[in-house]
Design a protein around this nucleic acid. Structure first.
Lengths: 182, 182
DNA sequence: AAATATACTTACTAGTAAGTAAGAATCCAA
DNA sequence: TTGGATTCTTACTTACTAGTAAGTATATTT
């Protein structure tokens, strides 16, 4: 992959995660990177190609992380996962699922499909982590692992959005609550 | 308020809550309502006027609900609040805060401000409900009311987004988890 | 040295976006 | 009944959007 291709993806991802997929144009990429509009189209013929590439890259980043964490205990896996959101918070970015999911019906089909696939994988991974933690008595919540998974991923997702909207550190209290209730 | 004005707001709200603020145009309103583009501009000169009107309407709807529920016990208030999300789910709509908040930085300033105000009010209301429930022993979670509030509102907000993305009934398990852990 | 692939630029198109100025139809009150 | 307010339409402008066709510069391979 060429340098410019990565620069384009990096900037596009930042734009998606601050303003949304429908609020940026190829001009917002070509001007800062000092290339022409058509150069962006050379790397990503359609805007949806760019969008999909970003989802697939995020998905593969997650997969690598999960493998990296394989030897960790469930509690540590959960902590690592939460740390990803803290990283996003420090960069003032909402997560990709939140950024794209809220306007799901406006997305091109290829983006919908890869987003659905990635989100399902993350949810599946979290279910395994919580189940494992229940079994080895690291966790002892009263809900089922499936139920707890959905609150955890949902609360983390929104906390980055609400951080911006409410202008309070929502992620901080969400993290505290999750760790206390698990 | 004229009939058409309300029809415009109803349709625009639906568009915002399915496709997002930046993914609809006045044409998407004028064509279905069989009026001209300029007629929409007559009622709402700028798109941001329409956006703000929708936020303010939602805000006042919430305020009315809260007054309506004043005599209810905390548990019932919480149930009523969750029921609002179940209603949204049945209509296949994400909530307004989720729809707009994820692209917060692309929103016109007047919309950012009214969205922030409304979200703060909802959070404040929920904090009061949870505190009241702790005091009268209806609830007995271990977190602080502030922490629990943020998980509850964050999880509910995302559950409508994740419902669409993951194509599972996330709200159902989020509801179950909240009610079991409170 | 010639051929080829890569990474662009130039220059364009067709369509859509938000927004406006001016005028017409309708209703309602003085 | 006439004058004004309300609610539109007609007709338009300016600016941007995604996308493309054709050509150019540079590097890489054969």
């Amino acid at each position: 992959m060429s340098d410019k291709r990565i620069e384009i993806m990096d900037l596009a991802e930042k734009l998606i995660r601050t303003k949304g997929y429908n609020a940026f144009s190829y001009k917002d990429i070509s001007v800062p990177l000092q290339i022409k509009n058509a150069a962006v189209h050379y790397h990503f013929p359609k805007k949806s190609d760019l969008g999909e590439a970003i989802i697939l890259r995020t998905r593969s980043t997650f997969q690598k992380k999960h493998i990296e964490w394989e030897q960790c205990l469930p509690k540590e896996k959960l902590n690592n996962f939460i740390a990803l959101y803290e990283k996003n918070q420090s960069l003032n970015l909402v997560c990709l699922v939140g950024a794209l999911g809220s306007s799901y019906e406006s997305l091109p089909e290829n983006m919908q499909n890869s987003l659905t696939k990635m989100s399902g994988e993350i949810r599946g991974w979290m279910q395994k982590v919580l189940k494992e933690g229940l079994q080895n008595k690291e966790f002892n919540f009263t809900e089922t692992a499936e139920e707890k998974t959905d609150v955890v991923i949902a609360a983390l997702l929104s906390s980055l959005i609400l951080d911006k909207v409410i202008r309070k550190n929502i992620l901080k209290s969400v993290k505290a609550s999750i760790l206390k209730s698990i």
